[in-house]
Amino acid sequence: MSAVAQEPAVVLDRIHKQFGDLVVVRDVSLTVARGEVVAIIGPSGSGKSTLLRCINLLERADSGRVEVVGRAVEPGAGVAGRDLAALRRSVGMVFQSFNLFPHMTVLRNVSLPQERVLGRSRAEADARSRQLLERVGLAAKADTYPSRCSGGQQQRVAIARALALDPEVMLFDEPTSALDPELGLEVLAVMRELAADGMTMVVVTHEIHFAADVADRVVVMADGAVLEEGTPEQVLRSPSTERARRFLSAVVDR
């Protein structure tokens, strides 16, 4: 492997984040290698979303260092608009609630950010969008509005929209939690393919099967800290802490 490939995609070094007096993330360190798929699981309120959002700077950590595809952000230091845009462009994010723009067609949703952020022409952007919509199985939906799509379809559009900026890392924050199980499967299928293609992914999820099958590594968080970390077999079969065991049996028994 080349030196560049060895360089990790994401480095979180002793991240601390609190809202007022509430400490949400305490001293969490996490390194994600290129091409690696990391699943973060844990009870709700444990700080998973916040940690994820520290990666693309939707939240600024109070202390600790964030390094994404070679760009380092020091705590407290300001980030110039240009650097922020560059970082956000190389990190795609998919939200629990899809967050498509409801007043634009599916195609515009995917094309607009390419035009505004990458400066692609409309024709270039649309061509790329159609290619990605094809890939997520939604070529036929290009000219409809999000409100005419099922939740699963909307989430696949959101994935295409993020992929259209050619990101190096993709973040997923409970991408199937707002979906009926059946529709969730469509989304998980797209994510599996993406992982198989070698995309670096950090996925906050309650889908234990997905974590077991797809993730290279599983991280269990509770109360703002990492409780366990390891291969899916290690963590899911034989968790070493009592807290993790309780959480896992609650999720698996459902």
Partner: peptide, 27 residues
């Protein structure tokens, strides 16, 4: 206009001004 959309625009790297112009103001 739902905050999630503004946030999504930000996560896509769109500038504050573009987010207002294309996402928030029209809606």
């Amino acid at each position: 206009v739902p905050a999630g959309e503004t946030e999504a625009a930000g996560a896509l790297g769109m500038s504050h001004r573009d987010t207002l112009r294309f996402v928030v103001v029209p809606q």
